[in-house]
Amino acid sequence: MSELTPSQTVGPYYAYGLTPEGRKRWKPDDHYRWKETVGDDLVTPDAVGTRIQIEGVIYDGDGKPIDDAMLEIWQADAQGRYASPADSGARPNAAFKGHGRSATDASGGFAFHTIKPGPVPGPDGKMQAPHVVFAIFSRGMLRQVYTRMYFPDEAANAGDPILALVPADRRATLIATRPERGGQTVYRFDIRVQGDGETVFFDV
């Protein structure tokens, strides 16, 4: 029998401990004096690949932006390797960790600077389309919810074994859009926790 320590909410006051620099996006001079270990800029000097920005807004069941959420992402590098001992193809000493954390701002917005991940192995020897795993924490969430962001215009999405498990009419909630912004590669991924257009969350 399992004896897991139960999850509890991250609460409204995590920022000075977990995202001390996150408040720079609220007010440039307003951040906590504590070194940040996990930030929203994943790009490291050794990171090869297309630099991208992932951004979005997270909404509650009333359609109101959630201004005190914390989002974490986990992704492979551009060659489809996870910086983890669980990935036999990984380069364990790579500086690119593939993990980031963003606090939402007053408008419920979050953002990550990273590189576009490559395709990674999936079940039964099939490849998975490039994607980013999200774990979302917030006041009012007693445990994290998991979702995935996929990229638009990826032919591989059609054969992705995880997307195939999602009802077709809800798949769009997992696929980012690509707004035009001069000089930058931006992917927009809004998250609706509940209600109309509710983002697909995974039982993992």
């Binding site: 009333d62 990674v120 498990l165 926790v193």
Partner: peptide, 18 residues
């Protein structure tokens, strides 16, 4: 939790390398 919990069933997926 009332407005911050998913209302639709979570989709069960296999555990992949991700």
């Amino acid at each position: 939790t009332v407005k911050r919990s998913p209302s639709k069933p979570l989709i069960i997926v296999p555990h992949t390398l991700s």
